[in-house]
């Protein structure tokens, strides 16, 4: 046979940086510099305001006070203990809920009937603010870590189930037909088409779920707990120790960003194909 089209040149990509990539990196660096400037300015204005009595440190806290408080809590080990307690409960609940939720959502693809029957329940549960379940959960599971894990689990499970189920139902019927025309069995269609095609949906559920897990976790700690960042914030709020509250809030932010980064890293790894 005659290949009329000449084979195009190799698509192998060289790893040296082009001027354009260098420029992009420079822009990122500049953006980061600006971000630091903004934070610095806010802190400076805040501290100056406190120093000149424009801002009441009792109601607002002050950067210097926050720094001192953070240092004290770090030395006493309280900050680490509370952060770890929160991270542990959040991560266990988040992973458990997101993974099991995604699996059940995917499995609903197998039983269209069950999916149809459960659909309104899932929608209703999804709309329900899960924190409203906290009093019940705490009665059932106590005020320890387990109740927080359960709350984070419930909050993330429903989102993951619904997302994975909706994702798997939006798969193009032509792709299913293609698999069947190649002789695929139902189970092969599931593993080789449904699971990978739903992956982007599942990852987006994971990303949303970081926030949901933290809300459920902190909410649970507000209601009843003896450790954790939510506990720290709640107790110090009641004592009007605003500096300590700020330390708790900032630590939470760090936790959220760290979790987010981990998920993005996994995403990058899983979807290397989409960047080509």
């Amino acid at each position: 046979m005659s290949t009329v089209l000449t084979a195009p040149s190799s698509p192998a990509v060289k790893k040296t940086r082009t001027p354009r990539q260098r420029r992009a990196r420079q822009i990122i660096l500049q953006d980061n510099a600006w971000r630091c400037v903004i934070i610095g300015l806010i802190l400076l204005l805040w501290q100056t305001g406190v120093d000149h009595k424009f801002i009441d440190p009792f109601l607002m806290g002050s950067p210097a006070g926050i720094g001192a408080e953070a240092w004290r809590m770090m030395l006493s080990g309280q900050l680490l203990t509370d952060t770890m307690a929160t991270v542990k409960a959040t991560v266990i609940g988040f992973l458990g809920g997101s993974i099991l939720g995604s699996l059940s959502g995917l499995l609903l693809w197998y039983c269209k009937r069950l999916a149809r029957i459960l659909d309104p329940f899932l929608i209703a549960l999804n709309g329900l603010p899960k924190i409203s379940l906290a009093p019940m959960i705490i009665i059932w599971f106590g005020s320890g870590m387990f109740s927080k894990v359960a709350l984070a689990f419930i909050a993330t499970f429903v989102v993951a189930t619904l997302t994975a189920y909706q994702g798997s139902h939006q798969i193009d019927q032509s792709l299913v037909n293609l698999m069947r025309s190649l002789g695929a069995k139902q189970q092969q269609i599931f593993t080789k088409l449904v699971v990978p095609a739903t992956m982007p949906w599942i990852i987006s559920a994971f990303r949303l779920n970081i926030g949901f897990a933290l809300i459920a976790e902190i909410g649970g700690e507000f209601i009843s707990s003896d450790t954790g960042l939510g506990h720290l914030i709640f107790v110090n709020g009641n004592l009007f120790n605003l500096n300590a509250v700020w330390v708790g809030v900032l630590a939470l932010m760090v936790v959220a960003v760290a979790l987010y980064l981990v998920v993005s890293q996994v995403e990058k790894h899983l979807f290397s194909w989409s960047r080509q």
């Binding site: 193009d172 032509s174 792709l175 037909n177 293609l178 698999m179 025309s181 190649l182 002789g183 695929a184 069995k185 092969q188 080789k192 088409l193 990978p196 095609a197 992956m199 979807f271 194909w273 989409s274």
Partner: peptide, 23 residues
């Protein structure tokens, strides 16, 4: 089928060998 329907998450090699893999 009417469109190429290549799976975006598979390399061309893996796309092309799909039928063999299924068998």
């Amino acid at each position: 089928l009417q469109r190429d329907l290549l799976f975006p998450w598979r390399t061309i090699l893996d796309n092309v060998s799909l039928g063999l893999e299924l068998s």
